[in-house]
């Protein structure tokens, strides 16, 4: 009985999770392209990573969950980078200097970009921070996760593995 209710709970959670992913208007559509300046001063364009699986993490210094998520994404990048995964961190902080300081302190191994304009936020329907978007090898958005809780990185890994196999 207890096992059955647990199973029902898991199924409900999976259903909620699936509906949250399916609810994103971005899923199944080409990822809006952008070019942004990076922490190291180099410009990066999303479309140049066509052919690789790209994880875009929109974060902000003021979003507490970002501080937990960034180290988890760094571990994912370290593990799957050689398999063809590209992780891009996009800061949406208006204050670029403070965001730059914060990003330097986090010491992540993946590129950190700074978005100070309104266009990308509008294109990706950014409302809650952090937000993670997975783009497949053909440049189509396949997964969107708004917010972050401990353990969400396991879902990211499952999705990444699936996309890397395609």
């Amino acid at each position: 009985m207890r096992g059955g209710s647990r199973l029902a709970g898991v199924a409900l959670a999976a259903l909620i999770s699936t509906s949250a992913v399916a609810a994103s208007p971005l899923v199944g559509k080409p990822a809006p392209d952008f070019a942004l300046k990076g922490l190291d001063g180099n410009n990066l364009r999303l479309s140049e990573y066509r052919g690789q699986v790209v994880l875009i993490n929109f974060w902000a210094r003021w979003a507490g969950d970002s501080r937990v998520e960034i180290p988890a994404l760094d571990r994912i990048n370290t593990t799957y980078h050689r398999a063809g995964l590209v992780v891009l961190g996009v800061s949406v902080d208006e204050d670029e200097a403070h965001a730059s300081e914060f990003a330097s302190a986090m010491r992540v191994s993946y590129p950190i970009l700074f978005d100070t304009g309104p266009r990308i936020g509008r294109d990706y329907s950014l409302r809650t921070m952090p937000m993670t978007v997975l783009v497949d090898r053909s440049g189509v958005v396949r997964y969107v996760k708004v917010g972050y809780k401990r353990g969400d990185d396991r879902a990211f890994v499952d999705q990444i593995r699936q996309l890397l196999r395609e």
Partner: peptide
């Protein structure tokens, strides 16, 4: 080159950021 901004009749019509490959 890093970026180019174009204005026609004082109205910004294009702003392009260049990557190393471009």
């Amino acid at each position: 080159l890093d970026s180019v901004t174009i204005k026609i009749d004082n109205k910004e019509v294009a702003n392009y950021l260049y990557t190393a490959r471009e």
